[in-house]
Computed example of a mutant assay.
Amino acid sequence: MVQEHEPGTPGEDTEPTATRRTADEAESSRASRGWWDRNADEYQEEHGAFLGDDRFIWGPEGLDEAEAGLLGPVEALKGRDVLEVGAGAAQCARWLAAQGARPVALDLSHRQLRHARRIDAAAAAALASAGATGAADVVGSRASGADDAAGVALVQADATALPFRDGSFDLACSAYGAVPFVAEPVRVMREVRRVLRPGGRWVFSVTHPIRWAFPDEPGPEGLSISASYFDRTPYVEQDESGRAVYVEHHRTLGDRVRDVVAGGFRLVDLVEPEWPAWNHQEWGGWSPLRGNLIPGTAIFVCERD
């Protein structure tokens, strides 16, 4: 899900230094794995209530897949094999399972997947304590017949090298996972296409590219352009030795479209969620003030022919 670009890594004596410099695939992957393993606890504690344990939220605006239907009609998800890339604690995958789908949640971070197991274990314990007569109240809308004790299938792997056979899935999705943090996003596109069956849909959300021209601040200071939209130099936080501890890669809107096409997909839709009136929270640089004026999230809806 979403990361905030605020320098600072818990457990280190000094805060990382923010800069713009090149970072290759290996350095980016290493930094992302380390960042999430160190920060997963804080992230889940801060944002877990908003994300929920089994909701599918596309970004800080709060666009819910249950209403958006970007993967297709909710009733059509039953029985579909779905891959979630950059799943974090598998909240989206858990919602998919509740609709009768067969999701696999993949993430680079072992610590994030530990949180997925924690949520599954808590749900299983609640189900067991409720007993057979009260089970429906505990699991809510979970699909009947789902293996609640086992939870969602979890896989730790890099999105540029998916450990699945060709044509393993009907659908693939990613809510701010993997794509913004890899140096070569076309590799992710091609890997996702490889594991999708013909006609499969791939939907992913990223920070809206226009946001890179503005400071990452939720207040008025975040409304004035401070950098070139066309500067594709990665944002890097590095330690005293110059080792990257966080890397995020900027692509223009056109770059993202070309990545999708180069990956073998057809772009079906590009969704720019508007900030809803009910959402009063700030999430890093996302806020009601900015969200009502400039887009914060871009969602690409793609299909494999």
Rank of each mutant, 00 (worst) to 15 (best):
residue 131 G to Q: 11
residue 238 Q to S: 14
residue 281 Q to S: 04
residue 264 G to I: 00
residue 50 F to H: 08
residue 13 D to I: 13
residue 293 L to T: 08
residue 111 R to A: 07
residue 106 L to G: 10
residue 284 G to H: 00
residue 253 L to D: 05
residue 249 H to G: 09
residue 54 D to F: 06
residue 196 L to I: 04
residue 205 S to F: 00
residue 72 G to D: 05
residue 166 D to V: 10
residue 267 L to C: 01
residue 273 P to C: 01
residue 256 R to A: 02
residue 38 R to I: 10
residue 1 M to E: 06
residue 125 A to L: 07
residue 86 G to W: 01
residue 99 Q to S: 14
residue 55 R to W: 04
residue 184 E to Q: 15
residue 135 A to T: 15
residue 107 D to H: 12
residue 164 F to R: 07
residue 126 A to V: 13
residue 263 G to S: 09
residue 232 R to E: 14
residue 75 E to W: 08
residue 40 A to G: 07
residue 197 R to C: 13
residue 159 A to M: 03
residue 245 V to P: 14
residue 219 G to Y: 01
residue 18 A to W: 07
residue 81 D to C: 14
residue 82 V to N: 03
residue 193 R to S: 04
residue 167 G to E: 04
residue 17 T to Q: 14
residue 63 L to C: 05
residue 31 A to R: 09
residue 48 G to F: 08
residue 282 E to G: 08
residue 204 F to Q: 03
residue 47 H to Q: 11
residue 178 A to S: 03
residue 242 G to Q: 06
residue 242 G to R: 13
residue 36 W to Q: 05
residue 244 A to G: 10
residue 284 G to S: 03
residue 141 S to K: 10
residue 246 Y to K: 13
residue 280 H to F: 04
residue 153 A to Y: 15
residue 139 V to R: 05
residue 7 P to F: 04
residue 102 R to A: 00
residue 36 W to A: 01
residue 118 R to I: 07
residue 63 L to K: 00
residue 221 E to S: 03
residue 231 D to T: 13
residue 29 S to F: 06
residue 134 G to Y: 11
residue 164 F to P: 14
residue 115 H to K: 12
residue 163 P to F: 03
residue 234 P to M: 05
residue 96 L to Y: 08
residue 220 P to H: 14
residue 276 P to G: 08
residue 72 G to S: 00
residue 296 G to W: 02
residue 49 A to W: 02
residue 136 A to P: 11
residue 232 R to K: 05
residue 236 V to I: 13
residue 276 P to E: 04
residue 79 G to M: 11
residue 289 L to N: 07
residue 295 P to Y: 03
residue 54 D to M: 05
residue 195 V to E: 07
residue 255 D to F: 01
residue 168 S to H: 10
residue 229 Y to K: 03
residue 192 V to D: 00
residue 167 G to L: 01
residue 103 P to F: 03
residue 305 D to E: 09
residue 106 L to A: 11
residue 80 R to W: 09
residue 23 A to L: 12
residue 55 R to N: 06
residue 235 Y to G: 10
residue 221 E to H: 01
residue 237 E to H: 14
residue 107 D to M: 15
residue 93 A to C: 10
residue 75 E to N: 12
residue 9 T to I: 05
residue 252 T to H: 10
residue 10 P to W: 04
residue 255 D to P: 01
residue 50 F to I: 12
residue 242 G to P: 08
residue 168 S to K: 12
residue 173 C to M: 00
residue 249 H to M: 06
residue 16 P to D: 15
residue 5 H to M: 00
residue 16 P to S: 08
residue 265 F to H: 07
residue 101 A to D: 13
residue 35 W to T: 14
residue 57 I to M: 05
residue 64 D to P: 09
residue 275 W to C: 02
residue 103 P to H: 08
residue 98 A to L: 05
residue 278 W to P: 09
residue 69 G to R: 08
residue 292 N to G: 09
residue 49 A to D: 01
residue 192 V to L: 02
residue 199 G to H: 07
residue 38 R to C: 04
residue 100 G to S: 08
residue 245 V to A: 08
residue 266 R to Q: 12
residue 26 A to Y: 09
residue 89 A to N: 09
residue 15 E to F: 14
residue 298 A to Q: 14
residue 81 D to K: 11
residue 166 D to T: 09
residue 120 D to C: 06
residue 22 T to V: 15
residue 167 G to N: 02
residue 52 G to F: 05
